[in-house]
């Protein structure tokens, strides 16, 4: 029995050795990004191309935009790729990041039950704000991310344009889940509620229930993604060269083509627009 224990212990120690990070093995960078890019499958589509060309592995930590910026501010990532222009500019102004570049956009869409009890269904420019007003008037259930993400920030901007005080309705017809896009869509599907989502997550989302797209095509709903290098002067350990290589590739013709070529069910999810 003692021998068995001894060999067991040896096996464990061996496992422990294997568990140590394989950092020395190859070069890698950590990218803090949003759930929308990870869960839509975009990264899975484009990253292997970059790694093949550069030999740099990209490790994506998918969080909400707010949390991703916080992670980067702590120096726990080399690059951030998020979608909240206002917050991104503040991040750079505060000295946490440098070299912000636009990469691509997708768009937000308003999802709701097929029956559309608030009669919010509409198309095209300027359709979003009135649709939200109708939902508020009907006090139809609306589910919000409530997690300080880029999508959440955009949603709050629309509500304020609509002149609706959602804070007052919180817990009533307005429900904040405090979670990512996917869990929020799950909640909306279960409640037959309205919800603002990014198109990428919606297209790859499987548990749709009775929900469908009600409002789309409003230019106000464009959702710009930017990429920022974490300030190497502030965090000297940041892999600036590898990070810049990634940013250069993303904004290069090659990278932009890779983004454009990603489709789900024949539908393009992200539209490259690097300058």
């Amino acid at each position: 029995m003692k021998k068995t224990l001894g060999s067991l212990a040896a096996a464990f120690v061996l496992t422990l050795g294997l568990a140590a990070p394989a950092a020395a093995q190859e070069q890698f960078i950590v990218v803090a990004s949003t759930t929308s890019t990870e869960q839509s499958g975009l990264f899975k589509h484009i990253l292997p191309r970059f790694t093949e060309q550069s030999g740099i592995e990209v490790r994506v930590v998918a969080q909400g935009t707010g949390q991703a910026l916080k992670t980067a501010a702590n120096g726990d990532a080399d690059v951030v790729l998020v979608h909240d222009t206002v917050a991104e500019e503040k991040f750079v102004a505060d000295g946490f990041g440098v070299d912000r570049r636009p990469v691509m956009y997708n768009d937000f869409i308003l999802i709701g039950p097929k029956a559309d009890p608030a009669e919010a269904r509409s198309q095209g420019e300027g359709s979003t704000v009135p649709a939200l007003q109708k939902i508020a008037q009907a006090e139809a259930p609306f589910v919000s991310r409530g997690d300080n993400s880029g999508t959440h920030a955009a949603e709050l901007r629309f509500w304020s344009q609509a002149g609706v005080d959602v804070k007052a309705a919180s817990g009533n017809w307005y429900r904040e889940t405090g979670s990512g896009m996917g869990p929020t869509l799950n909640t909306a599907a279960a409640m037959d509620a309205y919800v603002l989502a990014d198109r990428g997550t919606w297209l790859s989302f499987k548990n749709r229930g009775n929900l469908e797209i009600l409002v789309e095509g409003d230019p106000a709903m464009f959702n710009q993604y930017g990429v920022i290098l974490v300030n190497p002067e502030r965090h000297p350990h940041v892999k600036a060269d590898a990070g810049r290589a990634f940013m250069d590739w993303l904004t290069s013709e090659d990278g932009q083509q890779a983004i454009a070529s990603y489709q789900i069910d024949g539908e393009q999810l992200f539209f490259p627009n690097a300058e």
């Binding site: 950590v30 759930t35 869960q39 899975k44 490790r59 994506v60 930590v61 998918a62 990512g180 896009m181 996917g182 869990p183 869509l185 799950n186 599907a189 790859s204 989302f205 499987k206 548990n207 749709r208």
Partner: peptide, 24 residues
């Protein structure tokens, strides 16, 4: 861990991810 594919993705974080994607 950050649920990084091929690096720190384990059973439970993979499950959480699939829930997020609505693939119940």
């Amino acid at each position: 861990g950050g649920n990084i594919e091929h690096v720190t993705r384990v059973m439970t974080t993979a499950i959480a991810l699939e829930v997020s994607r609505g693939d119940l």
